[in-house]
Design a protein around this nucleic acid. Structure first.
Lengths: 227, 227
DNA sequence: ATAAAACTGTAAGGAAGATGACAATTGGTG
DNA sequence: CACCAATTGTCATCTTCCTTACAGTTTTAT
C-alpha cells in the first residue's frame, strides 16, 4: 500500500481520525499492513510480540481453541474492528486463538502493544477515543451474552440472524443477501446450541417465509420481522 | 472525610495511583464523596449529570430493572470497583439501574463524566490505566458469561459460591464466613436459574459437607473443593 | 473422476431444569 | 408481642432442547 493510502486509512478510522495529519504521518511509520487471503489463518495469540490489530477491509472470524482441542467461532469482525491485545494486558496462556479470513482479501494493520501504548501516552485525545472503543466493545459483549442467557434458542437464533444481516447489510433492512460463510456448527457455537437445532431453525425460518436460504447464501427478507 | 484522607484513598486506588501528589490534589477538588447506609438506594442511571463512581469501602449490589419491571441483581461490587458511566458513552435510555448498599456503610466517590474525561486528557498515563481496568472488566465479564453458558446449573452455582467466597475471604481459602445478604432469588438471577433450584442446591451442598449454611450466613469449608 | 471428508437433514428418546402450587419459617414493624 | 410480608423448603408435572443415530448432499483432495 502507498504511504498516502495508509494515511487515509488511518485518517478514516474512528480511532485514529483525531490525530492531525502530522501525527498520523508519524504513526504511519509504525504500523504493519498485511493482506490475508480467504481461508488463510492468522495466528496472533502466541506471537513473540504482543500486537493489536485493526481491520482495514474484509471480514475475519476469530476461532478459539479450548484445552480439549475443540474449536469454536468466537466473533465475526469487520472493517474498523479491533482485535488482539487491545486491552493492554497480558495474553492468557491457556487460551489459544487465531483468526481466519472469510472474505477474499482481508487487509489488516497491526501495532506492537508497546508502540501503541506510547502513542496513546502522547495523545490524550486518542486515549479517550480508545477508551470509548473498548468500553463500547464491553457493552456490546455483555448485551450479547445477556441475550444468550435469558432467551430460548429460537430467539437467540433470530437475534443472531438479525445482527448478522444488519452488519452485512450496509444500512439496508430488506432483502439483505448474506454470504453463508459459517457452518451450522459455527452458528451453533455462537448462539450456544447444537448443530441439529440450527439446521432445524434454518428450515423453520425458511418455511415461515422469513428468509430465503440455500447453502451458499441467506436472504433476510426483512430485518425487523426477526426477533 | 478530611482532605488528606481523600488524597490517600485516591492514591491507593489502582486507577489513580499513577497521578503525582500534586495532580491528585487537583483531582481531589472535583470528586464527590458520599456515604450510603445499608439498604439505602443510590440511583445513578437517570441522573441529570452522567457520573462514574468508585467504591472506597463497603459492598454494593447493582439492580437492573427491565421493561416489565422485573428486578434482578446484576453485579456485586466491592472496594475499588468502578460503576456508572465508566465507558464514557451515553446511557441506554430503556435500561434502568440502581445500586443498593449491602454492608453497613458504603463510601463512594463520584466524578462527572466530563470532568473525568478532561482529567484523562491531561494525563494519558491515567488513560492507559483506565483502559486496562475496562479491559480487565471486559475479560472478567466474558469469562463469567462463558461459564454461565457452557456449564450446567450445579457447576454455575459452585463457581458462583467459589467466587463469592474468594472475594469476601480476604485471601483465606478455608472456613470463609460469607454474610448472606442475597436471597435465593438474587442468586438465581446471577447464575441464571430459578429460586427453587438454588434452594435445592444450597441444601445439596450442605448435605455434601461443602458448606455450613444458615439463613444469615454461609461458611465455605474449603474454596478449592467447590467447582 | 472418484473417493474421502465435511456439511446438512430428519427423527426418536431422554434428561436437566423450569413452572406452578403450597406449606413452613423468619424477620420486620406497628 | 403478634401479625404480615418476604423468604425458604419440597414436590409433581411439563417443556425445551440436547443426544444419539443415520442418511443424503456438497466440497475438497488426489
Amino acid at each position: 500500500m502507498q504511504e498516502e493510502a495508509k494515511y487515509w486509512y488511518l485518517h478514516d478510522h474512528q480511532l485514529f481520525s483525531v490525530l492531525s495529519r502530522e501525527e498520523n504521518r508519524a504513526l504511519c511509520l509504525i504500523p504493519n499492513f498485511k493482506t490475508v487471503k480467504k481461508n488463510e489463518i492468522l495466528y496472533f495469540s502466541h506471537d513473540d510480540e504482543q500486537r493489536l490489530y485493526t481491520i482495514k477491509s474484509g471480514t475475519l472470524k476469530i476461532i478459539s481453541v479450548d484445552a480439549e482441542g475443540n474449536e469454536t467461532v468466537k466473533e465475526i469482525l469487520r472493517s474498523g474492528d479491533l482485535f488482539g491485545q487491545y486491552t493492554f494486558d497480558e495474553m492468557d496462556e491457556n487460551e489459544d486463538e487465531y483468526a481466519v479470513a472469510v472474505s477474499d482479501k482481508v487487509v489488516i494493520c497491526s501495532f506492537k502493544q508497546n508502540d501503541f501504548e506510547n502513542i496513546v501516552k502522547r495523545n490524550p485525545q486518542l486515549a479517550i477515543r480508545y477508551t470509548k472503543l473498548v468500553g463500547f466493545k464491553l457493552k456490546r459483549i455483555s448485551n450479547n451474552y445477556s441475550n444468550l442467557m435469558f432467551k430460548d434458542v429460537r430467539t437467540r437464533f433470530a437475534l443472531f440472524l438479525k445482527d448478522w444481516a444488519i452488519k452485512e447489510g450496509n444500512g439496508q433492512t430488506k432483502n439483505i443477501v448474506v454470504k453463508n460463510y459459517l457452518t451450522h456448527n459455527d452458528i451453533a457455537g455462537l448462539i450456544c446450541s447444537t448443530r441439529q437445532t440450527v439446521t432445524l431453525l434454518f428450515n423453520e425460518f425458511k418455511n415461515a417465509g422469513l428468509i430465503d436460504y440455500t447453502r451458499s447464501e441467506i436472504i433476510v427478507k426483512d430485518v425487523h420481522q426477526l426477533a
